[in-house]
Structure formats: C-alpha cells, structure tokens
C-alpha cells in the first residue's frame, strides 16, 4: 500500500477507468456532403473488446479510420493511450472483409509483411529474420494454419485466408486490433470457427479490439460492449454492456440468456431503423 498511496482514491478510480481510446464530440465530414459521423463520444478501456453495429454507410469504417489516425476529425478530439492522435497509429493492426493477401507471397511472407514496414522492426528485419519467422509460425499455429506457411493465398480457402489476414494484423504485437467486418464473407460454420479463434487470441493476449460487424450474434458473443450507430450521419445511439460470463462457449449462443439479449438488441435496431426512416 505504502508505495501506491501517492494516488488519491479518486485518482485511482479514474486511473483504472482511464480510457485507452477516447473520443470526445468527434465529427467528420469527408466533403461538403455533410458529416459522415457526428458528435461521437465514447471511451474504450485498455483490453476491452468493443463491437460496433449499424446500417451500411453509417460511418463504421470511418470510425476505424479516426481510431487509427488514418483520418483526422473535423471536430472534437481523438486520444489513444492518452495522446492526441495526429497520424497513422502503428500500435494498431487492421483486417477487413477481404483478406487482401498478396498473391505472390507465401502465407508466411504475407504475415511477415508488417515487420518489413513498421518501426522499429523494419531496420532489424534482416538481422532478426529467423526470430520473426518464429513469431509468425507460432501465430499461424495458434489460428490453426500450421502446415500452410508455404502455401500461397490462392491455395487457401476463404476462412484460411481470413485467419492469415488476422495474423498479419497481429504480427507486430499491436495494442489495438481493428476488424472491419472480417467474417462477413464467410459461410456460417467457418464464421463461428473464426469467432472462437478470435476469442482465444484475445483471451490470451488481451489487446484492445474494435470489431465492426452486421451480425448481432457475433457482436454479443465476442464483445464486452456493443455500440449501435444510427444511419448517416452516424451517431452512437446505444451502448450495451454484455455481462455474460467468460470464457463463452459457442453453445451458449443458442440458449438463454444469450438469445433474449440478441433479440433485445435486434428490437432496438429495428426501432432506430423504423424511427429514422
């Protein structure tokens, strides 16, 4: 106790609650067609798993760009890890609906690509290559791609490509993983398999995740907190904590209380759509 008593109880409380990602009144207009997203305030704790749902074109991808510093806000402020975001945040890794692997690189080399680019690894790449390859192999193993390291992306199924894409997003050990509808193009079985892959990765490494999705079951199964966005201009219209116990198993998604939770979310979104239309 003595070592930490310099902090007042209030500061301690604030400290544990201190936001890792902090949006304050953020709006963004790409051009003069008006705001794409409007007045978004939210904070994401370190290690929190956040899901964002909302209709197409409501600004979910825009939110991602603001979070990672790929785009600056027109109004308001974005802070990550206490610092205002001024440019691309290399502590983040991204994956999208389309795996976008490079067809001329093997799976392993695709996963290694970020290390050839991001500081400080890029300057050490030649010297530490063996070590980096070890990281990549380990990561591929944990997502179930052991033995596919030397295959080319076009030799992999869609689900396997997506696994590799997530490995590529994680290879530089980012603190922030941004997933933009990563499972949207997969069949239902593969999708649920990948939910579990992501769940286990997150459980083991505890990076902060922002997952954009259309799938309410996906959001509720994986996330700590679900945010619901309105139609354009996108605003946060609902924040929902999912306090289901962890670790969560797939079977629970077919049982109470999970099903009624999803139904409630669905009803809320129905209201938004009905109200806004």
């Amino acid at each position: 106790m003595t070592a930490t008593t310099t902090e007042t109880p209030a500061a301690t409380a604030a400290g544990s609650e201190r936001a890792f990602v902090d949006f304050e009144g953020v709006s963004l207009a790409y051009d003069d067609s008006g705001n794409a997203i409007e007045d978004i305030s939210l904070s994401i704790r370190d290690g929190e798993f956040v899901a964002i749902v909302g209709p197409s074109g409501c600004g979910k991808s825009t939110f991602m760009k603001l979070c990672t510093g790929l785009h600056g806000p027109t109004q308001g402020s974005v802070r990550v890890a206490g610092e205002p975001v001024t440019g691309p945040l290399k502590i983040s890794g991204m994956a999208f609906q389309n795996a976008n692997l490079l067809p001329w690189r093997t799976t392993l080399d695709n996963v290694l690509l970020p290390l050839e680019i991001v500081r400080p690894y890029r300057s050490q790449f030649r010297k530490r290559r063996a070590e980096f390859v070890g990281w990549a192999r380990e990561l591929l193993r944990t997502v179930g791609l052991e033995g596919y390291e030397d295959q080319f992306p076009w030799q992999l199924s869609g689900g396997m490509q997506q696994r590799a894409s997530i490995c590529r997003a994680l290879i530089h050990q980012p603190k922030l993983l941004m997933l933009d509808e990563p499972f949207a193009a997969l069949d239902a079985f593969t999708r649920e398999e990948l939910w579990c892959v992501l769940r286990d990765l997150w459980q083991a490494q505890r990076f902060t995740v922002v997952l954009v999705t259309h799938d309410l079951r996906e959001a509720a199964f994986l996330a700590d907190t679900v945010y619901v966005m309105s139609k354009r201009p996108g605003r946060i219209v609902e924040r929902r904590e999912i306090d289901l116990p962890r670790p969560r198993e797939l079977e629970t998604t077919y049982r109470e209380p999970f099903t009624s939770l999803v139904l409630e979310l669905r009803a809320q979104i129905g209201e938004i759509r009905g109200g806004a239309a």
Binding site: P88, M94, A95, N98, N100, I117, V118, R119, R168, A169
Partner: peptide, 21 residues
C-alpha cells in the same frame, strides 16, 4: 485496393514502401 492501403499506411508505410512491396 484502398483497404490494403489502409493496412499498410497504419503501419507507417511511405509511398515508396507501398510501391516497392
């Protein structure tokens, strides 16, 4: 692809990196 560009830019990739890689 704009998405691939995002994946690389967020890592701090410069124009030349993207061209070469």
């Amino acid at each position: 692809e704009p998405e691939l560009e995002d994946v690389l830019r967020v890592l701090g990739a410069k124009r030349l990196d993207v061209l070469l890689k």
